[in-house]
Amino acid sequence: MRELSVFVDESGDFGPYSSHSPYYLFTLLFHDQENSINTEVTYLDRKVQEHGFDIHAIHTGPIIRNEGYYKNFSPDDRKRLFNDLLLFTRHVNIKYHIVSVDKKQASGSKQLVDMLSKQLVLFLRDNLEYFMSFDKIIVYYDYGQSEITTILTSVFNSMFIDVDFRHVQPYEYKLFQVADMICTLELSKLNFDNNKISKSEENFYESHRKFKDYYYKTIKKKKI
């Protein structure tokens, strides 16, 4: 039986548009379970420990903002951890897609949900042959936002017969952490492209060129 894992993570909120929250986006990361990633997971865990970090859920937004668990680590150490996850992403056999909306285009949360749902439906229809090649689809989400839960369950259940939805804790799956990182990088791309880059992003990536030629280039190769 061929099974497809779909890891979902989001960035933004369903409140009104603001300069601090101009976009809403979520990542869908796809992994054919026939492709083992055990070797890559073992290597990542070893590199994380070598760089002085506990084995934990790598959360890239706080790494960039120097918050929480990462607050007492140097900029170089935080970049090493980020790059460990980026290198892991480069080597695993995955694909991803981003669903995103500029919140200026939505009059409220209901319209935002409708716009995101329609984007997801169109993407799945455009790639229906790929998804129908699997016997079962398993969607992993941390149920962080009820609107995303509703979008995922309604859209996937309406289009596929055998779909399983699972509540995931970020530390349980490296690919969920990759989905988080991709969401972070895609948001940073929007910020760079629209001159909305934050000071913490500017400091972390160092320049738009480095962001584009190193960070974003790495994940773009995995994009559907």
Score class of each variant (00 low, 15 high):
residue 30 F to W: 05
residue 122 L to N: 14
residue 105 Q to F: 05
residue 50 E to G: 00
residue 137 I to R: 06
residue 170 P to W: 07
residue 15 G to S: 12
residue 78 R to N: 02
residue 203 N to E: 13
residue 135 D to F: 11
residue 20 H to M: 10
residue 82 F to I: 03
residue 178 V to M: 09
residue 151 I to L: 10
residue 172 E to T: 02
residue 10 E to S: 03
residue 34 E to A: 11
residue 89 T to G: 11
residue 94 I to M: 01
residue 163 V to D: 11
residue 36 S to N: 13
residue 138 I to L: 13
residue 219 I to E: 07
residue 118 K to V: 07
residue 114 D to T: 08
residue 127 N to G: 07
residue 4 L to G: 10
residue 219 I to R: 02
residue 107 S to F: 15
residue 35 N to I: 06
residue 32 D to N: 15
residue 183 C to Y: 03
residue 28 L to A: 08
residue 222 K to V: 06
residue 69 Y to I: 14
residue 148 I to W: 09
residue 61 G to I: 05
residue 183 C to P: 01
residue 215 Y to R: 04
residue 117 S to G: 13
residue 84 D to P: 00
residue 15 G to C: 09
residue 62 P to K: 04
residue 206 E to G: 00
residue 72 N to T: 13
residue 178 V to K: 03
residue 218 T to C: 10
residue 33 Q to C: 14
residue 131 F to E: 10
residue 10 E to V: 03
residue 137 I to A: 09
residue 74 S to T: 15
residue 39 T to V: 10
residue 63 I to H: 03
residue 212 K to H: 03
residue 15 G to N: 10
residue 115 M to R: 07
residue 98 I to G: 03
residue 35 N to S: 10
residue 195 N to W: 00
residue 70 Y to I: 08
residue 53 F to D: 04
residue 149 T to R: 08
residue 21 S to D: 15
residue 205 Y to S: 02
residue 43 Y to W: 15
residue 144 G to I: 08
residue 72 N to I: 11
residue 181 M to T: 00
residue 197 I to A: 08
residue 58 I to E: 09
residue 191 N to I: 00
residue 91 H to V: 05
residue 201 E to Y: 08
residue 196 K to Y: 05
residue 85 L to D: 01
residue 179 A to K: 03
residue 104 K to G: 07
residue 138 I to N: 12
residue 80 R to N: 02
residue 74 S to K: 04
residue 166 R to L: 12
residue 76 D to P: 01
residue 185 L to F: 10
residue 115 M to D: 04
residue 92 V to F: 10
residue 70 Y to C: 03
residue 161 I to P: 03
residue 1 M to T: 05
residue 177 Q to W: 06
residue 50 E to A: 13
residue 180 D to R: 08
residue 217 K to G: 01
residue 59 H to P: 05
residue 43 Y to V: 07
residue 9 D to R: 03
residue 8 V to I: 15
residue 79 K to F: 14
residue 123 F to I: 09
residue 97 H to F: 14
residue 81 L to C: 05
residue 120 L to F: 07
residue 201 E to K: 06
residue 134 F to H: 06
residue 209 R to C: 02
residue 98 I to K: 12
residue 190 L to M: 09
residue 47 K to Q: 15
residue 174 K to G: 01
residue 2 R to N: 12
residue 27 T to H: 11
residue 113 V to N: 02
residue 169 Q to C: 04
residue 188 S to K: 04
residue 142 D to P: 00
residue 79 K to Y: 12
residue 104 K to S: 11
residue 69 Y to L: 15
residue 124 L to F: 11
residue 46 R to K: 14
residue 184 T to N: 10
residue 146 S to I: 12
residue 5 S to V: 00
residue 219 I to D: 07
residue 218 T to E: 13
residue 121 V to Q: 11
residue 50 E to W: 13
residue 141 Y to Q: 06
residue 26 F to C: 04
residue 212 K to T: 07
residue 160 F to Y: 15
residue 18 S to Y: 05
residue 20 H to T: 09
residue 125 R to P: 00
residue 176 F to R: 02
residue 161 I to L: 15
residue 178 V to W: 09
residue 183 C to R: 03
residue 95 K to T: 03
residue 44 L to W: 09
residue 43 Y to K: 08
residue 125 R to D: 06
residue 155 V to G: 11
residue 222 K to Y: 08
residue 85 L to E: 02
residue 46 R to Y: 09
residue 30 F to E: 08
residue 216 Y to H: 12
residue 52 G to K: 08
residue 78 R to S: 01
residue 150 T to A: 09
residue 159 M to L: 15
residue 21 S to I: 00
residue 76 D to K: 01
